[in-house]
Protein backbone atom coordinates (compact mmCIF):
# COMPACT_ATOMS: atom_id res chain seq x y z
CA UNK A 1 0.00 0.00 0.00
CA UNK A 2 1.16 3.54 -0.77
CA UNK A 3 2.18 5.53 2.31
CA UNK A 4 2.10 9.33 1.99
CA UNK A 5 3.62 11.85 4.43
CA UNK A 6 3.36 15.65 4.57
CA UNK A 7 -0.10 15.82 2.94
CA UNK A 8 -2.44 18.66 3.87
CA UNK A 9 -4.69 16.08 5.60
CA UNK A 10 -1.82 14.94 7.80
CA UNK A 11 -0.67 18.53 8.44
CA UNK A 12 -4.08 19.93 9.35
CA UNK A 13 -4.86 16.63 11.12
CA UNK A 14 -2.40 17.37 13.92
CA UNK A 15 -4.07 20.76 14.46
CA UNK A 16 -7.42 18.93 14.71
CA UNK A 17 -5.93 16.81 17.52
CA UNK A 18 -4.79 19.92 19.42
CA UNK A 19 -8.32 21.38 19.53
CA UNK A 20 -9.84 22.11 22.90
CA UNK A 21 -6.33 22.29 24.29
CA UNK A 22 -3.74 24.83 25.41
CA UNK A 23 -0.37 25.37 23.73
CA UNK A 24 2.12 27.01 26.07
CA UNK A 25 5.20 29.12 25.31
CA UNK A 26 8.32 27.66 26.91
CA UNK A 27 11.94 28.77 26.88
CA UNK A 28 13.63 25.85 28.66
CA UNK A 29 13.11 22.08 29.12
CA UNK A 30 12.08 22.81 32.73
CA UNK A 31 9.28 25.07 31.48
CA UNK A 32 8.22 22.37 29.02
CA UNK A 33 7.91 19.79 31.80
CA UNK A 34 5.81 22.17 33.92
CA UNK A 35 3.56 22.76 30.89
CA UNK A 36 3.16 19.04 30.17
CA UNK A 37 2.45 18.26 33.82
CA UNK A 38 -0.25 20.94 33.81
CA UNK A 39 -1.93 19.32 30.80
CA UNK A 40 -0.73 21.42 27.86
CA UNK A 41 -1.54 19.68 24.54
CA UNK A 42 1.69 21.06 23.02
CA UNK A 43 4.50 23.48 23.83
CA UNK A 44 5.97 26.31 21.77
CA UNK A 45 9.73 26.71 22.01
CA UNK A 46 11.05 30.24 21.72
CA UNK A 47 14.10 32.25 22.71
CA UNK A 48 12.31 34.60 25.12
CA UNK A 49 8.63 34.85 26.06
CA UNK A 50 6.93 37.78 24.28
CA UNK A 51 6.81 39.96 27.42
CA UNK A 52 10.63 39.74 27.60
CA UNK A 53 11.04 40.37 23.87
CA UNK A 54 8.99 43.52 24.37
CA UNK A 55 11.06 44.59 27.37
CA UNK A 56 14.58 43.86 26.14
CA UNK A 57 14.08 44.73 22.46
CA UNK A 58 16.69 43.87 19.82
CA UNK A 59 16.19 41.31 17.05
CA UNK A 60 14.21 38.26 18.17
CA UNK A 61 15.16 35.08 16.29
CA UNK A 62 14.57 31.34 16.21
CA UNK A 63 15.67 29.59 19.44
CA UNK A 64 19.07 27.91 19.76
CA UNK A 65 18.74 24.33 18.39
CA UNK A 66 20.32 23.02 21.62
CA UNK A 67 17.38 24.38 23.61
CA UNK A 68 14.86 23.05 21.09
CA UNK A 69 16.46 19.57 21.19
CA UNK A 70 16.44 19.70 24.98
CA UNK A 71 12.73 20.54 24.96
CA UNK A 72 11.94 17.77 22.43
CA UNK A 73 13.75 15.25 24.64
CA UNK A 74 12.09 16.40 27.85
CA UNK A 75 8.40 15.95 26.90
CA UNK A 76 6.21 13.52 24.95
CA UNK A 77 3.65 16.11 23.78
CA UNK A 78 4.13 17.85 20.40
CA UNK A 79 6.78 20.56 20.27
CA UNK A 80 6.27 23.65 18.13
CA UNK A 81 8.87 26.34 17.50
CA UNK A 82 8.84 29.84 16.09
CA UNK A 83 10.69 31.17 13.07
CA UNK A 84 10.75 34.70 11.71
CA UNK A 85 8.24 35.74 9.04
CA UNK A 86 9.76 34.95 5.64
CA UNK A 87 12.85 33.22 7.12
CA UNK A 88 12.64 29.97 5.18
CA UNK A 89 16.08 28.82 6.35
CA UNK A 90 15.10 29.03 10.02
CA UNK A 91 12.03 27.01 9.02
CA UNK A 92 14.18 24.37 7.28
CA UNK A 93 16.41 24.10 10.34
CA UNK A 94 13.37 23.64 12.59
CA UNK A 95 12.07 20.92 10.28
CA UNK A 96 15.47 19.18 10.39
CA UNK A 97 15.37 19.31 14.21
CA UNK A 98 12.10 17.35 14.12
CA UNK A 99 9.72 19.96 15.57
CA UNK A 100 6.07 19.00 15.10
CA UNK A 101 4.77 22.43 14.02
CA UNK A 102 6.39 25.71 12.97
CA UNK A 103 4.90 29.06 13.95
CA UNK A 104 5.88 31.65 11.34
CA UNK A 105 5.45 34.36 13.92
CA UNK A 106 5.13 38.13 14.12
CA UNK A 107 6.42 37.84 17.69
CA UNK A 108 9.92 37.42 16.25
CA UNK A 109 11.49 40.17 14.15
CA UNK A 110 10.39 39.70 10.51
CA UNK A 111 13.10 38.62 8.05
CA UNK A 112 11.06 39.60 4.98
CA UNK A 113 8.62 42.50 4.92
CA UNK A 114 6.93 41.36 1.73
CA UNK A 115 6.95 37.58 1.44
CA UNK A 116 5.81 34.92 3.85
CA UNK A 117 7.31 31.42 3.60
CA UNK A 118 5.93 29.12 0.90
CA UNK A 119 4.72 26.57 3.38
CA UNK A 120 3.73 24.02 0.72
CA UNK A 121 7.46 23.27 0.35
CA UNK A 122 7.65 21.62 3.77
CA UNK A 123 6.67 18.26 5.26
CA UNK A 124 6.24 19.85 8.69
CA UNK A 125 3.01 21.87 9.14
CA UNK A 126 2.86 25.63 9.86
CA UNK A 127 0.64 27.84 12.00
CA UNK A 128 0.40 31.57 11.22
CA UNK A 129 -1.17 34.59 12.90
CA UNK A 130 -4.07 36.56 11.40
CA UNK A 131 -6.07 39.65 12.32
CA UNK A 132 -8.99 39.09 9.98
CA UNK A 133 -10.47 36.62 7.51
CA UNK A 134 -8.49 37.87 4.51
CA UNK A 135 -5.18 37.49 6.32
CA UNK A 136 -6.17 34.02 7.60
CA UNK A 137 -6.98 32.86 4.05
CA UNK A 138 -3.83 34.41 2.56
CA UNK A 139 -1.80 32.34 5.01
CA UNK A 140 -3.91 29.27 4.23
CA UNK A 141 -3.26 29.82 0.52
CA UNK A 142 0.49 29.81 1.28
CA UNK A 143 0.09 26.42 2.93
CA UNK A 144 -0.57 27.21 6.62
CA UNK A 145 -2.38 24.21 8.13
CA UNK A 146 -3.50 26.11 11.23
CA UNK A 147 -4.35 29.74 12.02
CA UNK A 148 -4.29 31.70 15.26
CA UNK A 149 -5.31 35.24 16.08
CA UNK A 150 -2.35 37.55 16.45
CA UNK A 151 -3.74 39.40 19.43
CA UNK A 152 -0.98 41.52 20.95
CA UNK A 153 1.60 39.13 22.39
CA UNK A 154 3.34 39.86 25.67
CA UNK A 155 0.73 42.34 26.92
CA UNK A 156 -1.48 40.11 29.06
CA UNK A 157 -4.27 42.15 27.49
CA UNK A 158 -6.97 40.15 25.70
CA UNK A 159 -8.50 43.08 23.79
CA UNK A 160 -6.62 42.55 20.51
CA UNK A 161 -7.25 38.79 20.42
CA UNK A 162 -10.95 39.51 20.90
CA UNK A 163 -10.84 42.08 18.11
CA UNK A 164 -9.18 39.61 15.73
CA UNK A 165 -11.43 36.66 16.60
CA UNK A 166 -14.55 38.80 16.21
CA UNK A 167 -13.25 40.11 12.89
CA UNK A 168 -12.77 36.58 11.53
CA UNK A 169 -16.08 35.21 12.84
CA UNK A 170 -18.08 38.31 11.90
CA UNK A 171 -16.76 38.31 8.35
CA UNK A 172 -17.54 34.58 8.00
CA UNK A 173 -21.14 35.36 9.02
CA UNK A 174 -21.33 38.02 6.29
CA UNK A 175 -19.71 35.66 3.77
CA UNK A 176 -22.30 32.94 4.42
CA UNK A 177 -25.03 35.17 2.99
CA UNK A 178 -23.20 35.72 -0.32
CA UNK A 179 -24.10 34.10 -3.64
CA UNK A 180 -21.49 32.73 -6.05
CA UNK A 181 -21.82 35.88 -8.20
CA UNK A 182 -20.81 38.04 -5.24
CA UNK A 183 -17.67 36.11 -4.28
CA UNK A 184 -15.36 37.81 -6.78
CA UNK A 185 -15.99 41.30 -5.43
CA UNK A 186 -15.73 39.99 -1.86
CA UNK A 187 -12.40 38.30 -2.71
CA UNK A 188 -11.08 41.64 -3.93
CA UNK A 189 -12.24 43.41 -0.77
CA UNK A 190 -10.66 40.75 1.49
CA UNK A 191 -7.56 40.24 -0.70
CA UNK A 192 -8.17 36.49 -0.41
CA UNK A 193 -8.57 33.73 -3.02
CA UNK A 194 -12.11 33.04 -4.27
CA UNK A 195 -11.74 29.26 -3.89
CA UNK A 196 -10.88 29.52 -0.20
CA UNK A 197 -13.69 32.02 0.40
CA UNK A 198 -16.12 29.61 -1.24
CA UNK A 199 -14.84 26.75 0.92
CA UNK A 200 -15.11 28.90 4.06
CA UNK A 201 -18.65 29.95 3.13
CA UNK A 202 -19.75 26.36 2.55
CA UNK A 203 -18.15 25.08 5.77
CA UNK A 204 -19.33 28.06 7.82
CA UNK A 205 -15.86 28.25 9.38
CA UNK A 206 -12.20 28.52 8.35
CA UNK A 207 -10.96 25.51 6.34
CA UNK A 208 -8.27 24.97 8.99
CA UNK A 209 -8.28 25.03 12.79
CA UNK A 210 -8.29 28.52 14.34
CA UNK A 211 -6.77 29.08 17.80
CA UNK A 212 -6.74 32.21 19.95
CA UNK A 213 -3.40 33.79 20.82
CA UNK A 214 -1.88 37.04 22.04
CA UNK A 215 -2.92 38.32 25.47
CA UNK A 216 -4.45 35.30 27.23
CA UNK A 217 -3.55 35.68 30.93
CA UNK A 218 -6.34 34.03 32.97
CA UNK A 219 -8.70 31.03 32.82
CA UNK A 220 -11.52 33.49 32.09
CA UNK A 221 -9.58 34.88 29.10
CA UNK A 222 -9.21 31.36 27.71
CA UNK A 223 -12.92 30.60 28.18
CA UNK A 224 -13.85 33.95 26.59
CA UNK A 225 -11.89 33.10 23.45
CA UNK A 226 -13.44 29.61 23.30
CA UNK A 227 -16.93 31.10 23.56
CA UNK A 228 -16.07 33.52 20.75
CA UNK A 229 -15.37 30.49 18.54
CA UNK A 230 -11.68 29.66 19.04
CA UNK A 231 -10.79 25.97 18.59
CA UNK A 232 -8.15 26.18 21.34
CA UNK A 233 -5.75 28.59 23.01
CA UNK A 234 -2.09 29.60 22.89
CA UNK A 235 -0.72 31.10 26.08
CA UNK A 236 2.58 32.92 25.86
CA UNK A 237 3.81 35.07 28.72
CA UNK A 238 0.58 34.41 30.66
CA UNK A 239 1.95 31.26 32.28
CA UNK A 240 5.57 31.95 33.16
CA UNK A 241 5.03 35.63 34.00
CA UNK A 242 2.29 34.79 36.50
CA UNK A 243 2.95 34.40 40.23
CA UNK A 244 2.35 30.62 40.25
CA UNK A 245 2.97 29.24 36.74
CA UNK A 246 2.07 25.57 37.43
CA UNK A 247 -1.28 26.42 39.00
CA UNK A 248 -2.12 29.05 36.40
CA UNK A 249 -1.26 26.61 33.61
CA UNK A 250 -3.45 23.87 35.03
CA UNK A 251 -6.37 26.27 35.56
CA UNK A 252 -6.17 27.57 31.98
CA UNK A 253 -6.19 23.98 30.66
CA UNK A 254 -9.30 23.17 32.69
CA UNK A 255 -11.01 26.43 31.65
CA UNK A 256 -10.43 25.61 27.98
CA UNK A 257 -12.24 22.26 28.42
CA UNK A 258 -15.08 23.60 30.58
CA UNK A 259 -15.39 27.00 28.86
CA UNK A 260 -19.19 26.83 28.96
CA UNK A 261 -19.54 25.78 32.61
CA UNK A 262 -19.69 28.89 34.80
CA UNK A 263 -19.64 26.98 38.11
CA UNK A 264 -16.44 25.13 37.17
CA UNK A 265 -14.87 28.34 35.85
CA UNK A 266 -15.62 30.06 39.17
CA UNK A 267 -14.00 27.20 41.07
CA UNK A 268 -10.83 26.95 38.99
CA UNK A 269 -10.31 30.73 38.78
CA UNK A 270 -10.07 31.05 42.56
CA UNK A 271 -6.81 31.52 44.49
CA UNK A 272 -4.38 31.38 41.58
CA UNK A 273 -2.14 34.21 42.76
CA UNK A 274 -1.64 37.22 40.52
CA UNK A 275 -1.78 36.94 36.75
CA UNK A 276 1.00 38.51 34.68
CA UNK A 277 1.11 42.32 34.89
CA UNK A 278 -0.68 43.66 31.84
CA UNK A 279 -0.07 46.54 29.47
CA UNK A 280 -2.77 48.93 28.32
CA UNK A 281 -2.73 48.98 24.49
CA UNK A 282 -2.72 52.78 24.28
CA UNK A 283 0.69 52.72 26.04
CA UNK A 284 2.22 50.86 23.09
CA UNK A 285 3.16 53.09 20.14
CA UNK A 286 1.66 51.93 16.83
CA UNK A 287 5.08 51.01 15.42
CA UNK A 288 5.90 48.74 18.37
CA UNK A 289 2.77 46.64 17.98
CA UNK A 290 3.65 43.11 16.93
CA UNK A 291 0.29 42.43 15.25
CA UNK A 292 1.02 44.87 12.42
CA UNK A 293 3.96 42.70 11.25
CA UNK A 294 3.05 40.59 8.19
CA UNK A 295 0.19 41.45 5.84
Amino acid sequence: MVVETGTITVKSGLAEMLKGGVIMDVVTPEHAQIAQEAGACAVMALERVPADIRKTGGVARMSDPTLIRGIIESVSIPVMAKCRIGHFVEASILQALGVDYIDESEVLTPADEKHHINKWDYTVPFVCGARDLGEALRRTAEGAAMIRTKGEAGTGNIVEAVRHMRAVQGTIRRLRALGDDELGAFAKEQAAPVALLRETRDLGRLPVVNFAAGGVATPADAALMMRLGADGVFVGSGIFKSQEPARMAQAIVQATTHFNDDAILAEISAGLGSAMPGIELSEIPELERLAQRGW
Binding site: V3, T5, V10, V99, V124
Partner: peptide
Amino acid sequence: ERNAYGRQIDSFETDL
Protein backbone atom coordinates in the same frame (compact mmCIF):
# COMPACT_ATOMS: atom_id res chain seq x y z
CA GLU B 1 3.49 2.50 22.47
CA ARG B 2 2.93 6.24 22.04
CA ASN B 3 4.35 8.21 19.07
CA ALA B 4 5.74 4.93 17.78
CA TYR B 5 6.11 5.98 14.14
CA GLY B 6 8.23 9.06 14.91
CA ARG B 7 7.42 12.77 14.99
CA GLN B 8 4.87 14.78 13.00
CA ILE B 9 6.95 14.71 9.79
CA ASP B 10 6.48 10.91 9.90
CA SER B 11 2.67 11.13 10.20
CA PHE B 12 1.09 9.46 7.16
CA GLU B 13 -1.99 8.32 5.30
CA THR B 14 -2.47 4.96 3.61
CA ASP B 15 -5.09 2.41 2.56
CA LEU B 16 -5.89 -0.54 4.84
